[in-house]
Amino acid sequence: MTRVQVLDTRGVSRALERMAAELIERVGDEKLLYLVGVQTRGVPLAHRLAGMIGAATGHEPPVGALDIALYRDDVGPWRAAHQQPVLRATELPVSVDDKVVCLVDDVLYTGRTVRAALDTLMDYGRPRAIRLAVLVDRGHRELPIAADFVGRTVPTAHSEDVQVRVRECDGEEGVWLEKEVAG
């Protein structure tokens, strides 16, 4: 097993700063913006992006948390053996109607989590638009989904594991790539 650090604490902060700047530029009216973190690590990342956007524009966008467990496609009748994911809180303090909702997650991989998040969000209302921001894009999409804002693109093999640690959840911070070493 080898473990290579892709981003350190400073690298994570700089990636988020750049994503915040791009969000302000591309969304145009930051008053429409609503950041929604996907549980678990997307939530603290969304809060940090909101803080950065607030510091830059004077208007801090609202932040929500979305749990997609009840909308997943990898549990239930499609798998012979399965385990129900633990439910976490969904909290959307303001309505998504007519907002530009930016989903925030730590890693974009197959795209199945994002598909589930889109379905979840649609049950809460009709956003004006939905965008996607991820700290790491590791490739290998199984669905036609792409991120609008990416902190770092990391080419990976299926056999590798991308680990994102954020201080709010894990006590440490950074992005690591883990791979099995043959022999």
Partner: peptide, 24 residues
């Protein structure tokens, strides 16, 4: 009890339905 606590929120949604047991 923890799972039920999170399920409570679904009753407050505009669409009070999730697809978790679709087809069951």
């Amino acid at each position: 009890l923890d799972t039920a606590d999170q399920m409570r929120e679904i009753a407050a949604r505009p669409i009070k339905k999730v697809p978790a047991l679709r087809g069951k």
